[in-house]
Write a protein that binds this DNA or RNA. Sequence first.
DNA 1: CTAGGGTTAG
Length: 475
Amino acid sequence: MLSLSTSGFPPCPRPSKAATNASAPSGDASLCAFRAHHRAGRALHANPALIPALAACAQLPAAVAEAEQIHALLVKSGVPRTVPDVQASTSLVRAYARLGRVYDARKVFDGMPDRTVVTWNVLLDALVRDGDLDAAWEVFMEMPQRNVVSWNTIIAGCARNGWAQEAVDLFVEMTVAYGLAPDEATMVGFVSAVRDIGLLGIGKSAHAYVLRREFSLDGALGVALISMYTRCGSMGAAHSCFLSVTTKNVEHWTSLIAGFAAHGQPEKALRLFVKMRQVGIEPNGVTFVTVLNACSHGGLVSEGFKYFDLMRSMGIRPMIQHYGCLVDLLGRAGFLKEAFNLASNLPEDPGFVIWSSLLAACRSHGNVKIAELTASKLADAKPSHGSSYVLLSNTYARAKQWEDSKRTRRRMEEHGVTKKPGLSWIEVDGSVHSFATADKLHMESEGIYRMLEDLKHNLTSAACEPEPFALSEHL
DNA sequence: CTAGGGTTAG
C-alpha cells in the first residue's frame, strides 16, 4: 500500500567524493612503482613510472599531496629541456587540473619553456572543465597550433556549457574553413549541440555521416544520437538508432527511456526498463531519474515509490533529483500537501525546477493555499523569476480569485520582472519556425489556424474529443 | 600511462 508519509525518508546525501576514494592514493600501483624507483635512488627523469604516476594522480581525487610532491621533485631536478620533461610537465598540468587546482595547473603551464600542442590541449581542457569558457576561448585563439583534439575540446566544451550555437559554428569552421575531418569525438560534441538547438535535419545528416564513416555507436556517439532524436521529438528514429547499436550500455538505455518518459509513453519507458534489467544491464542513478519521471508522467504514484525503493535496495543512494521526481510525482497526482512537505523537509533545497513543477501542479489542481506557500519558496530559490508570478497569478485565476490574480501580476510589474514567453518550434524543410501560445505573427497564421480547426473537427467526428484547454496551451 | 566524447526531474 502506498505510504505518503514524508518523514520516513533517509537523509539525502550531498554529492560527495567519499565514494570515489575506494582506492587510496597510497595503494595505487603506478604511485607505488614510482616510489620504489625513487627510493632505489633512480634519477627523476629516468624513473619509468613518473608519467604513469602523474596520470594516476589525475584520476585519484585524494592525490593532491602526491601531485605536489612530484611537482617539488620536478622543480628540484632543474629546468626541463628534454622531450620527456615536457611530457612530465604536461602530465603535471593535467593532474592539477583534474584535481580541481586550475590555478596551479595554469602556473605550471606558464612556467614551461617548451610546450607541445598536447600541453595546450591539456590547458584548454582544464579551462573547459572548469566551466570558464571565456578563458578557454582565449587560449583556443592564442594557441600556436591546433589539431583535431583542440577542436573537439572546444566544441564539446561549448556544447556542455550551453553554447550550442557556438559549438555548431565552430564545427562548420573546423570542417569547411580548415578542411579538417571530424572524428568520433568531434561528432559527439556536434550532435549534442545540434540536439540542444533542436535541428533534426542537421542531426540526421550528422547520423548519415557517422554511418558513412562507419563510426561505432557503442559508446558516446550512439548515446548522443539517441538523445538527439528524442530531444528533437523523433522517437521512431531514436528507437531504430538504439536498435542499431551493437553493444548497448546503460546510457543508451537510459537515453531512450528518458525519451519515452518525456513523450507521453510512460508504459513503454517502464517496459524498456524491465527489458534492460532482463538483458543484464545495471541501471544507475540517472536511469532511475528517468524511470521516476516516467511514473510521474503516467500518474503511477505507487509504482514510483516502488521504483524508489528498488533503487535503494540496489545500493544507489537517492540524490536530490530523485527526491525532486517524487515531489513532482506527488504533485501531479494531486497529493499537493504531501509533495510540499516532502520538498520542504529535504536536507537540501530541491531548487527552482522542483518548486516550479509543484507550483504548476497547484495551478492544475486549483490549490491556492499550497500555491502561495510554494511561490514563496520559489521566490527564495530564485528571486525575481517571472514564471513564479505567472503561475501563481494563473492559480488565482483558475480559482476565480480575480483580485489576487491581478494583484500578483501588478507586483510582478512593480518589481520590474518579466517572463520570457515559452516557445515551441517546428522544423520545416530545414528552417526552424518558433511560436508562442496564441501566436499570430507568422505570415501564414490564418491558414495555420484554419488547418488546426479542421483537425479539431476531424478528431471530433472521429469521436476523439480533444480537450480544449490542453489543446489551446499548445497552439 | 603527455590530449578530446555521453544519459537525468518543469
